[in-house]
Amino acid sequence: MSVLHTVNKSPFDRNNLDSCLNHAQPGDAILLIEDAVFAAMAGTAVAGKMADAAKTFRLHVLGPDLKARGFDPAGVVTGVTVVDYGGFVELAAQNKAINAWL
């Protein structure tokens, strides 16, 4: 059974997202929350990396954290699913463990 990985740091500040992508297994779910949500937006320096990652992992971003920071959930990289806190709960329930990349 797959794992849910959460990432909460901006990819422009720390290596948490890279470390997560380097360890997650194909088919795992990854959820970007808090300051990691910037990685989900199209047009950034990491958008290509995210589009590639979407082929291997189930990528998600927390909508409330995007909106809080002034970003439109409609503008995320193709392949990234926007979820609310209820969706976060469902992801945690559907995967066997939650690995927080702090």
Partner: peptide
């Protein structure tokens, strides 16, 4: 190796990171 570490992590029931 990083790949082996990723596989080992995937076997865990509870992962605590700080």
């Amino acid at each position: 190796s990083r790949a082996e570490m990723g596989k080992l992590m995937a076997e865990m029931d509870v992962v605590l990171t700080a």
